[in-house]
C-alpha cells in the first residue's frame, strides 16, 4: 500500500507522536480550493473559452413529467470531434440534467452531483434530492464562480418531478441566471426550438406526453437542419413519477430532396 504513489497520505491532521492532536472540528487551518480563490495582485487569468462544446439542449414539460433532449455530439471548435457522447444524464429517480457548453465543465459539475447523490443514499433517510433543489444549488455554484471571474462555461437544463409528482423544468446558465418554464432550451435551440414549441402551446392546458414527444422530434430535426454544430442522433430523457430514464439514441428523420430546389445562394 505504501508503494502506491496515488494513495493519499494516511495521516492528514492525524495524531503524531510527541505532538498535540487536533481533533476533528478543531480550528485546523483551511485553504479555499484554488478555483474558488479570487484574482491575485499579479493578475490571475482564468478560463479563456470553451474548448470542447455541446450544442443545444431542449426541455419540454408535459402534464405528467418532463422530456429533456440533446444530440450526442461534442464538438472541438468546428470539428465534430466526439459523436456518441450522451449529454442528457439521469441524476436520480427524480432528476434529469441536460448539459451544453464546455463539456469538461459539464463532466466536472456532474461528478460533484453524483457524489451528492451517494451522500443522499448514505444518509438512508429516504429523502432524496428534487430537481428544484438541484437547480437552486447550481445557481449558487455557478454564480459564485462567475463572481470570482472564473466561470464554468455551461448552460444546463434541469428537469424532473418533485415528491408529489409535479413536473419541474428549469434552466441555469454560466452566470447563475435561472428560470422555470414549460419549455426551455440552450444554444441554438433557444432560437429554433423555443418558438416552435411556444407556437403549439394550448393556452388552457399543459402539453400531453404525445404532443411533447412530437415537439422534441420536430425540434431535434430543425436543429439538425439549421445548427451546423449538430448531428442527426440524439437521446431523450424522460422523467415522470413512475419512471426516470434516458431513451435512445434516436435518429433524425432526414430528408434532403428539397436541397435540389434551393436556389440563389
Amino acid at each position: 500500500m505504501m508503494n502506491n504513489s496515488f494513495a493519499q497520505p494516511m495521516w492528514s491532521n492525524g495524531p503524531s507522536p510527541g505532538q498535540f492532536y487536533n481533533f476533528m472540528g478543531g480550528n485546523a487551518p483551511t485553504q479555499l480550493p484554488r478555483e474558488l480563490t479570487t484574482a491575485g495582485p499579479f493578475g490571475t487569468k482564468h478560463s479563456t473559452a470553451a474548448i470542447t462544446t455541446g450544442s443545444s439542449v431542449v426541455g419540454i414539460k408535459f402534464d405528467g413529467g418532463v422530456l429533456v433532449a440533446a444530440d450526442t455530439l461534442v464538438s472541438y471548435g468546428s470539428l465534430a470531434r466526439y459523436q456518441d457522447i450522451q449529454r442528457v444524464f439521469k441524476i436520480n429517480n427524480n432528476i434529469l440534467l441536460g448539459g451544453s457548453g464546455d463539456f469538461a465543465d459539464i463532466q466536472s459539475i456532474k461528478r460533484n452531483i453524483d457524489q451528492k447523490m451517494i451522500e443522499d443514499q448514505c444518509y438512508n433517510d429516504g429523502v432524496i434530492m428534487k430537481p428544484g433543489e438541484l437547480a437552486s444549488w447550481l445557481t449558487r455554484v455557478l454564480y459564485n464562480r462567475r463572481s470570482r471571474m472564473n466561470p464554468l462555461y455551461i448552460d444546463v437544463v434541469v428537469g424532473g418531478v418533485d415528491e408529489t409528482g409535479k413536473p419541474f423544468l428549469g434552466n441555469v446558465d454560466m452566470r447563475g441566471r435561472a428560470y422555470n418554464d414549460y419549455v426551455v432550451a440552450t444554444g441554438f435551440g433557444r432560437h429554433l426550438a423555443l418558438p416552435l414549441v411556444r407556437e403549439r402551446k394550448p393556452k388552457d392546458r399543459d402539453f400531453t406526453f404525445e404532443e411533447a414527444t412530437n415537439l422534441i422530434r420536430e425540434s431535434m430535426k430543425v436543429l439538425y437542419y439549421r445548427d451546423t454544430r449538430s448531428i442527426p442522433q440524439y437521446t431523450v430523457g424522460i422523467c415522470t413519477a413512475a419512471d426516470c430514464s434516458i431513451k435512445g439514441p434516436f435518429k433524425v428523420e432526414e430528408n434532403w430532396t428539397f436541397a435540389e430546389t434551393v436556389k440563389g445562394y
Binding site: T48, I51, S78, L79, S147, P151, R177
Partner: peptide, 22 residues
C-alpha cells in the same frame, strides 16, 4: 492561456472576454 500554445489552437473556437454581467 491557450493562446500560449499555438499547436493546440482550436479552429472555430470563439475566444470571448467573459463578462459577469448580462
Amino acid at each position: 492561456g491557450v493562446e500560449q500554445f499555438p499547436d493546440y489552437k482550436v479552429p472555430g473556437v470563439q475566444h470571448v472576454d467573459f463578462s459577469p454581467y448580462e
